[in-house]
């Protein structure tokens, strides 16, 4: 269902890079990537996943997963753990720890504490562990400053360095507006996936473009990088990818 897109992004392997960042331009939706990655990680036996829901609540990922051919509820509480910030806020209102900051911690600091707690609980018993953050730009809406978001990502990157089999995957929407934050988060990892809109406008058969940048080798004075560009189309039950120029106007 989503193998081709993961293959194009180089995220279909069992061991993923330590830090992967997805930059999503304005007016495009890259949420399908999170669902694709989630499905791929759930299929690996004994691979732990922590889903931090900031843009959508858990139900969204469940529904998206059902369309892509996997059931998250089977794994929930076993290999899949969820920090559902939006649901907590909706259920508990202003008493929610994300809003009232009971220990004097900011939202991002509280998130780091919770993520660390989950990691300590589950990491030892899993063959690998993946933390999915969807998405960072919601933190701005919830009152976090740019510096706090940067510090949050730095903490996540430190976690990835501390744990060998840990992968952190972040997504930031409106990356063209939050350029500096986007650059600073992207530099923490070796893989950056940019979800871009079509420059030529809207096209029925293609939704947008994925630009995948991967650092192959860090030299003393320059980096060796690979860049790959593919077009994508999100259908009802799958995601298709095309090479640039493969699809044309049919007369």
């Amino acid at each position: 269902m989503a193998t081709s897109v993961l293959l194009a992004c180089g995220l279909n392997e069992q061991k993923l890079p330590g830090f992967v960042h997805i930059s999503e331009e304005s007016n495009v939706d890259g949420s399908f990537l999170i669902s694709c990655i989630l499905g791929q990680r759930l299929r690996i036996s004994n691979a732990g996943i922590l889903l931090v829901c900031l843009q959508h609540h858990y139900k969204h990922y469940f529904n998206a997963g059902m369309r892509l051919g996997y059931n998250t509820n089977i794994f929930l509480g076993k290999t899949l753990d969820v920090i559902d910030v939006l649901r907590d806020m909706a259920c508990q209102g202003l008493k929610s720890k994300w809003l009232c900051c009971p220990q004097g911690l900011s939202l991002t600091e509280q998130l780091v504490v919770d993520i660390r707690a989950q990691l300590e609980k589950n990491y030892a018993s899993r063959s690998s562990y993946t933390i999915l953050i969807d998405n960072l730009s919601i933190l701005f809406n919830l009152g976090a400053s740019k510096l706090q978001v940067q510090q949050f990502c730095q903490s996540l990157a430190d976690l990835a360095k501390e744990h060998e089999n840990l992968t952190v995957i972040t997504k930031l929407s409106n990356s063209d507006i939050h350029t500096l934050t986007d650059n600073n988060v992207a530099k923490l990892g070796d893989v950056r996936i940019q979800v871009l809109r079509m420059k030529s406008g809207v096209f029925r058969e293609v939704d947008g473009k994925l630009l995948i940048e991967r650092v192959l080798d860090e030299g003393s004075y320059s980096c060796e990088q690979s860049r790959k560009e593919v077009l994508y189309k999100v259908n009802d039950r799958n995601v298709k990818i095309f090479n640039p120029g493969e699809i044309g106007v049919k007369v």
């Binding site: 030299g219 004075y221 980096c223």
Partner: peptide, 8 residues
């Protein structure tokens, strides 16, 4: 080239 600053 910030990612390789220290190496540089």
């Amino acid at each position: 080239r910030e990612r390789i600053a220290l190496k540089f």
